[in-house]
Design a protein around this nucleic acid. Structure first.
Length: 160
DNA sequence: GCCAACGTTGGC
DNA sequence: GCCAACGTTGGC
């Protein structure tokens, strides 16, 4: 079965790629959007993730991660002490899901949002489309490969 | 800090 | 079930 590819956003102040490298593995708790949740539920172990830092100057893809556990209940939704607490989540209806991620490697160089927008091959990527705020996005194999090429080329590349 | 985009909530 | 109000995301 072919690996699928994804892009997942994180604010580095909350959880950065360096944090993931340091931890070795993490659960991706706190997603409180149904579309993003449903995408996580369709992930499989071994799927590859472009790790995107939002709220940065500049924002962009900084590393590659891998799904190491498929979707299960996000228990932080039922923890009143958690910042992600959701009163509507119960043991009968846990409502939210999360996956586990492990780092694969950082990119040789960051591929910024501006770089992604400048590449015509990536014009249909969700992350470059105006107003697309979804924190979990599907990425095609071609788009994924193109981002890796850009990272290897220093994040700057001219279209032929 | 501003504001556009978009999801969610809640009154009706 | 519609839709206006509101809250959040996230680039700039």
């Amino acid at each position: 079965m072919a690996r699928k590819h994804w892009l997942m956003k994180s604010e580095p102040d909350t959880y950065s790629f360096q944090d993931l490298v340091h931890d070795g593995r993490t659960h991706w708790e706190g997603v409180r959007n149904y579309q993003a949740r449903n995408l996580m539920r369709s992930m499989a172990v071994g799927d590859l993730v472009l790790f995107y830092h939002s709220q940065m100057k500049p924002p962009g893809v900084v590393g590659i991660a891998e799904v190491v556990k498929e979707a299960y209940d996000d228990f932080t939704a039922q923890d009143p002490k958690s910042p992600y607490f959701d009163a509507k989540a119960t043991p009968d209806n846990p409502r939210w899901s999360m996956v586990d991620l492990a780092p694969v490697r950082p990119l040789e160089s960051m591929v910024s949002l501006a770089d992604l927008k400048d590449n015509p091959k990536l014009e249909s990527m969700a992350v470059v489309r105006k107003g697309q705020r979804l924190s979990v996005q599907p990425v095609t194999a071609e788009e994924y490969q193109e981002v890796l090429v850009m990272a290897a080329c220093g994040g700057e590349q001219d279209a032929e």
